[in-house]
Amino acid sequence: HNLTITQGKLFFHYNPKLCLSEIHKMEEVSGTKGRQERNDIALKTNGDQASCENELLKFSYIRTSFDKILLRWEPYWPPDFRDLLGFMLFYKEAPYQNVTEFDGQDACGSNSWTVVDIDPPLRSNDPKSQNHPGWLMRGLKPWTQYAIFVKTLVTFSDERRTYGAKSDIIYVQTDATNPSVPLDPISVSNSSSQIILKWKPPSDPNGNITHYLVFWERQAEDSELFELDYCLKGLKLPSRTWSPPFESEDSQKHNQSEYEDSAGECCSCPKTDSQILKELEESSFRKTFEDYLHNVVFVPRKTSSGTGAEDPRPSRKRRSLGDVGNVTVAVPTVAAFPNTSSTSVPTSPEEHRPFEKVVNKESLVISGLRHFTGYRIELQACNQDTPEERCSVAAYVSARTMPEAKADDIVGPVTHEIFENNVVHLMWQEPKEPNGLIVLYEVSYRRYGDEELHLCVSRKHFALERGCRLRGLSPGNYSVRIRATSLAGNGSWTEPTYFYVTDYLDVPSNIA
């Protein structure tokens, strides 16, 4: 807008934040220059609390790290170098490059900038070799853009010569660093050979998330399962459950009422301010606690030095998902009996873990797994792929695949051998790939016309006998059925096997 004052003059007093240069501009645009008398524009009460600059400061050096910015700028000295009290560095987070010096300023003089007072450097006698002032900004957020400017702080001049310097606002972004852990990993099994893994992005990506790394490792069953005799009275049979499938998407929606109208769909109840505040506090606490764990609990591995020492970490090797089922080394339970199943799973520490690289999504279907087997899954978020990966501390989750139908069934015939004193040795093959492992066998036998009897055969007993022995049988026709019990439950009964026990007292003698 054009402003013209045809008559009258300007009068400025007691404006401590208004620089004289701005008042002189007002004289020019209003056409009143030359009308004012000496005392109409006070030299001592206008701009006496402001830094009124008329020179431009330029930054000469900028260096960044993930949490620091090192700045240096060209030296500046007023005509009387004693008038320079120091520099004021202003900075704040700036997602967009549209910041002005006066953003967030209120009537009390406060604003949204963080201000650092910096002492002037030592003055050199040689004007050509003056030290460049600077400042190291610490405690910054990774991968965050900051708006920065600097200006001088000078003393009051009796001659009211307006001098000083100020830089333009520059924008500097800190470097990326390792992201925080992925949030809320959930693993479920939808079949006997697959596990579905879902997660949420890290709360602090500290860069642009480029991919996720998912490692999985087959877990050995508890050692007590191999040692305890679950045929003993009072000892509860062990059981394991597989990871249940995901709930429906509708039930997972946030901010939804727990109660549904019987007449149909209901609208979600909005969260109160107290609920939102509580969630923010919980989120802040979780982030602080995660940072504490990362800094205190997890110790970084030592990389190899120039002395030739090897990095103890196993090298990563990509495998196809079809090879995942046989990740671990199978060892027989008892070496003397080769027909026992290889369900003991000690994992070799030198073995390469299978892994998958996930790009542009937060889910993965891990296939080719062994049925009813526990897996430990390790999830890392990465925001750099080359020249070397920059990934987060791992988040861990466990899951067990679903049982395989008929995996616990005894394959092959049940054979028998009759000894003296009416002892019958029953023999059968253990299931080759049971659900988890076989903890015991149930032997059901009966003599024709009598009630059915049951015998429990422990895992250890089966390994020693290759089956079991029935003792003290009365003469007669017998039928026997056997079924295995694994961590997933009972298998199917075998087809009945028949044998006849004679009275050993009636056996004919070869003595003449």
Rank of each mutant, 00 (worst) to 15 (best):
P270S: 09
F298W: 06
D409V: 06
N360F: 10
L487Y: 12
S223W: 09
S444D: 05
Q252P: 07
C231T: 04
S367Y: 08
A381T: 11
A463P: 04
A381R: 10
P413Q: 15
I377V: 07
A335Q: 07
K287F: 12
A395E: 07
P354K: 05
D323Y: 13
E465C: 07
A512V: 06
N206Q: 06
F215Y: 09
Q256K: 11
S284C: 01
R400Q: 05
I438V: 12
Y504N: 04
L364S: 13
V296H: 09
E281D: 06
H425R: 12
F298M: 14
F285A: 14
M402I: 07
G467A: 03
G374P: 09
R390C: 11
L235Q: 07
D273S: 10
T210Y: 07
I438E: 01
K357E: 10
Y500Q: 06
E221Q: 04
L364R: 09
Y230C: 10
S341C: 11
Y375N: 00
V324L: 09
A394G: 15
G489H: 13
R218N: 11
V297N: 06
Y396D: 02
S239I: 10
R466C: 14
L437N: 12
L379M: 08
V480Y: 06
R240S: 13
V299S: 13
D311C: 06
E227R: 08
S203C: 15
Y445A: 15
A484E: 04
H254K: 13
H294M: 14
G476C: 00
R240C: 14
H425A: 14
P354A: 10
G322P: 13
A407D: 04
G449S: 07
I418S: 09
Q275S: 09
R316W: 15
L225E: 07
T307G: 12
I276D: 11
G476E: 01
W242F: 05
Y375L: 04
W242Y: 06
A381M: 04
E389H: 14
G476N: 01
V439H: 09
R240Q: 05
R390V: 13
E290P: 06
D222W: 14
K317W: 04
K317N: 07
V501T: 04
N490G: 14
F337A: 04
N477L: 06
S344V: 06
V324Y: 03
G374L: 09
H461C: 10
E388C: 14
K432P: 13
S203N: 15
I377G: 04
F289I: 11
R471I: 09
R466D: 13
N206R: 05
L505C: 07
S492V: 12
V439P: 05
D273L: 09
S248T: 07
F289T: 07
R400P: 01
E258D: 12
H294G: 04
E350I: 06
T340W: 14
I276A: 12
S341M: 11
Y441G: 01
S257V: 09
S203F: 15
G308P: 15
E310S: 12
F372W: 06
S342F: 09
A263R: 11
H254I: 12
V501W: 02
P270C: 02
I377L: 13
H294L: 08
Q275N: 08
D222C: 13
V334C: 04
R376S: 07
E442P: 01
G207Q: 02
A336V: 05
K406H: 11
L225K: 06
E404N: 10
T343K: 09
S223T: 08
I511F: 15
L453N: 15
K302E: 14
N206K: 05
E227S: 11
N295D: 05
P349T: 11
V297G: 13
T373C: 02
V345L: 13
P354D: 14
T401D: 00
G306F: 12
G264Q: 02
V439S: 08
D261K: 07
N295P: 15
N326H: 14
S262D: 15
Y448H: 09
F355Y: 08
A330M: 13
K432V: 05
L487H: 00
Y504W: 10
L455T: 10
E404Y: 06
A263V: 12
I209S: 10
R481A: 12
Q429S: 15
E282N: 02
R447M: 03
F285K: 14
T343Y: 13
K302T: 11
R400H: 14
L235D: 04
S342W: 02
E389K: 15
F215M: 08
L470P: 01
S268I: 10
T303C: 08
S444C: 14
E265S: 07
P245H: 10
Q219F: 12
S248A: 09
